[in-house]
């Protein structure tokens, strides 16, 4: 797992206060996040099959579903059993569609909140934001080939935007930004739980 990420940004860290959980993002940062959220949404949107049984679709079944070949998508929609592909596939047919829809819902909720610089989140919105940021980070981490803690540390060392000279270093900086943002959000959510209990 990744630890705390400390890095200076124009954005302000999420915090918990009288107005609830609040944050602040510059327009460029909001654009960046919107793009990331949209990318993950399009990865998760199920392909519409031509001859799908409308009833099975209605109750959330998907008999044509397969284990994703894209590693990032497989990380978002993992097998439910470690050493039983057949049972995992059967489970996937029953659950994957609603899992995709739930994730898309959280990503859309976060994207919709990006219409102004000041973010004020209800507890439910904060939860959806934290889930959406997590999925964005999981996809970025696959693209950056983060396989172990050493890889994560290597990416984490990239903190200077003036060093962004290629796609990989740019992705690393984006990953570190979303890590920092999610960490501050989770801390604010924890503070709000402490305050209420």
């Amino acid at each position: 797992m990744a630890g705390d990420a400390r890095v200076a940004h124009v954005a302000k860290a999420f915090k918990y206060g009288l107005k609830g959980i609040t944050g602040y993002l510059e327009p460029a940062e909001r654009e960046l996040l919107r793009g990331l959220l949209d990318d993950v949404i399009s990865m998760l949107e199920p392909e519409l099959s031509q001859n799908e049984d409308p009833l099975t679709a209605l109750i959330g079944l998907d008999m044509n579903v397969k284990e994703p070949s894209d590693r990032a998508l497989l990380r978002l929609l993992p097998n439910v059993m470690k050493n039983d592909d057949a049972a995992s596939l059967e489970f996937r047919q029953l659950t994957e569609r609603s899992l995709r829809e739930g994730k898309i819902g959280a990503l859309r909720a976060a994207a919709m909140g990006l219409d102004r610089n000041e973010l004020v989140l209800t507890p439910e919105e904060a939860k959806l934001w934290s889930m959406a940021l997590n999925d964005v980070r999981l996809v970025l981490a696959e693209r950056l080939d983060i396989r172990d803690e050493a890889d994560a540390d290597h990416v984490h060392a990239m903190q200077d935007w003036s060093q962004a000279e290629d796609v990989e270093s740019y992705l690393a900086l984006v990953y570190n930004f979303t890590t920092w943002l999610q960490e501050s959000l989770v801390q604010a959510m924890m503070a709000s739980i402490d305050r209420k209990s």
Binding site: M1, L138, A152, E183
Partner: peptide, 9 residues
């Protein structure tokens, strides 16, 4: 375990 998910999260 995975190297991505935050411990706090």
């Amino acid at each position: 375990n995975d190297p991505v998910n935050l411990m706090s999260y």
